[in-house]
Write a protein that binds this DNA or RNA. Structure first.
Length: 224
DNA sequence: CCAACGATGGGT
DNA sequence: CCCATCGTTGGA
């Protein structure tokens, strides 16, 4: 786990960040820290895997060809809102809305490296952490990795569900701050589980921090 | 009204 | 590979 260095300035991401091109946002979110403020305290993690969904032009996007249903309203707002939807009855996915109003593009947050609120995460994920699991000097335990290494796992760990759909990331409940500059470790790959998207399934719009231990399970091979 | 479906995760 | 499980969606 990365420890917060007190010497470093952590700055909240603002409107101008989210209003950039979606690919740029997806790349620059790597290394940033997602924070959910809950009554018990802060739960946070460093973003290590993202995917860009390019809106009306992208066959993998919910908003392909301008599709717009009530639950997608946040997607059509200006950059900086959360778009959260439920999947298969019991999973949630968190997206960061990008670009200008009526440009329905977003970045899916696919994996985090835990930072704060380990006990709260473990409770929400039904994972029992032992003292050994907390020793991170050499090897990171399997249970620790399993906390936030997938888009729905991280939502469960941070307590994110559709009650937060449409929340403004410029507010104080759910927000993102600058973290480490890890762009030299960035790698692009095709996106996951979108075979229905025909030729768009091959677009290299997934971004990872190469070698990070918390990438989603299908692509551990990339941690070399 | 109602049936089909899914930007997942877990197990085989 | 298979499939659980339920809110959203869109077509009767």
């Amino acid at each position: 786990m990365k420890m917060m260095k007190s010497s470093k300035q952590y700055v909240r991401l603002e409107k101008s960040f989210y209003e950039q091109n979606t690919i740029t946002v997806a790349q620059r979110l790597l290394g940033c820290i997602l924070i959910h403020k809950v009554p018990e305290g802060l739960i946070s993690g460093m973003i290590v895997e993202t995917e860009a969904y390019m809106g009306v032009d992208d066959k993998a996007a919910h908003s392909y060809q301008g599709k717009h249903t009530p639950r997608m309203d946040p997607l059509y707002k200006r950059g900086g809102y959360a778009y959260i939807y439920q999947l298969h009855g019991y999973n949630y996915c968190l997206n960061v809305v990008t670009e200008k109003e009526n440009q329905p593009r977003a970045v899916l947050i696919r994996a985090l490296e835990p930072i704060q609120g380990l006990e709260l995460m473990a409770r929400r994920r039904n994972i029992k952490l032992t003292a050994d699991d907390m020793k991170t000097a050499d090897k990171i335990s399997k249970k620790l990795k399993n906390m936030t290494n997938g888009p729905s796992k991280l939502c469960q760990a941070l307590g994110i569900d559709t009650s937060l759909n449409g929340v403004d990331l410029l507010g104080n409940e759910l927000y993102i701050i600058t973290g480490e500059d890890l762009n030299d470790r960035m790698m692009a790959t095709p996106r996951i589980n979108i075979s229905y998207a025909e030729e768009y399934q091959y677009e290299p719009w997934r971004f990872i921090i190469k070698g990070n231990s918390f990438l989603s399970r299908l692509y551990k091979i990339e941690s070399k």
